[in-house]
Computed example of a mutant assay.
Amino acid sequence: MSYVKDFTTVYTIGNRNYEITAPARFDDETNQPIYDAELDERASEMARQAYRDDMGLLSPTELKKYRAKVGLSQRNLAELTGLSPNTIALYEAGAFPTPANNKMLKYLINDDELLRQYIMDDTNNYSNDLVAKVKAYLQQKDIVVIDQSFQPKFTAVQLANWLRVENYFGRELDENVEPLTQMKLIKLLYFAYGRYLVKTHTKLFTSSIVHLQYGPVITEVHSKFKGLTVLDTGKPSKEAFDDYNLVSKDSDISHLLRLVNEDYINYSASGLSQKTNQPGSPWSLTDDGRIIKDQLIFDTFSNGLEE
């Protein structure tokens, strides 16, 4: 006879130790754990998933869900990516992807525009079956369309100045409100950009958003305040107040900025970095120094995530 209760085991994966507590089977007489294929495998998979989370590795479930979403067989996905069908099968069975394959698959899974580029490139010589499946998926998928003729009303710096002045007013009313840092300012603008992109399918500002070491960076704002950590310990400049008054005339955009500021008023810059820099975020799926694509931002924010 036997019984089941929680048991803690330490698993070592890739020189990392994971302490996993999960149900295990015990012998009635000896009260020692005994082999149970299903329970033991479940605990092992918990350890493997903890390792995947630490290393930012794609999980079998993510890969299977992607194939199901697009309507691809394992052989289709192998053809699309240039991997072997056996490799795809191994990854879906739980094998860890190589760093290069993991990065490539994550790019693909998180960027339908990249999928479109793959399938429209005639030099890839994809099979008719694969092309038909991908085109059918893309036709019904809500791909963000950016109106390139649309010119945003304000620059990123003008919007940044609005947030600076709003922070000043907050500090005047509440001594516990901390002065705005450049890093937090950029995070707030990034969140505002994502929300606006989803709502309007247009850019909030034209400045590029790039992947740098500490997260998504709005180049125009970073250049304007280069070298500054804390932007204002006292009253902001006249230029900032002029921009604040100008932006405030647009009720929709000023309301958006105010909501973002209120949502994250108690967050530190490092706390916001934990959101923007987590695995699977647009930042994590973009190479260092490269522009973060609007499609990645749109997909993330349209799913109710701010990363």
Rank of each mutant, 00 (worst) to 15 (best):
Q151I: 06
G14Q: 01
I218E: 11
E62G: 02
S248Q: 05
E306R: 12
M1A: 15
Y264W: 02
E172W: 04
P279I: 07
G234E: 14
F26I: 00
A95M: 14
I146Y: 13
Q139W: 06
L130Q: 03
A50W: 02
P60M: 12
D129Q: 15
D142H: 08
P97H: 01
W162T: 08
Y118A: 14
D287N: 14
L114H: 09
K226S: 08
S59E: 05
L246R: 12
A192P: 06
S73P: 01
N124R: 14
W283M: 02
Y264N: 05
I119V: 09
G14L: 03
A37L: 04
M120A: 13
K153Y: 08
V165K: 02
V4N: 04
P99N: 11
L256A: 02
F154R: 09
N124A: 11
N245G: 15
Q148H: 13
F205I: 05
T12R: 13
L246Y: 06
P99F: 03
D6M: 11
T229L: 15
Y126K: 05
Y214Q: 07
S223A: 05
L159V: 13
L185G: 00
S223P: 10
N17Q: 04
P282L: 10
Y118Q: 03
E306G: 07
Y35G: 09
N125F: 13
E62C: 02
H255G: 14
M46W: 11
F150M: 11
E29Q: 09
L114Q: 08
V217I: 07
Y168V: 09
L272K: 11
A22K: 12
T200V: 01
S270D: 11
R171I: 01
K153G: 14
E41R: 06
D122V: 06
F301N: 02
L259K: 15
N167A: 08
D54W: 09
H255I: 14
I291Y: 02
A47W: 00
T233P: 02
V177K: 12
N76Q: 04
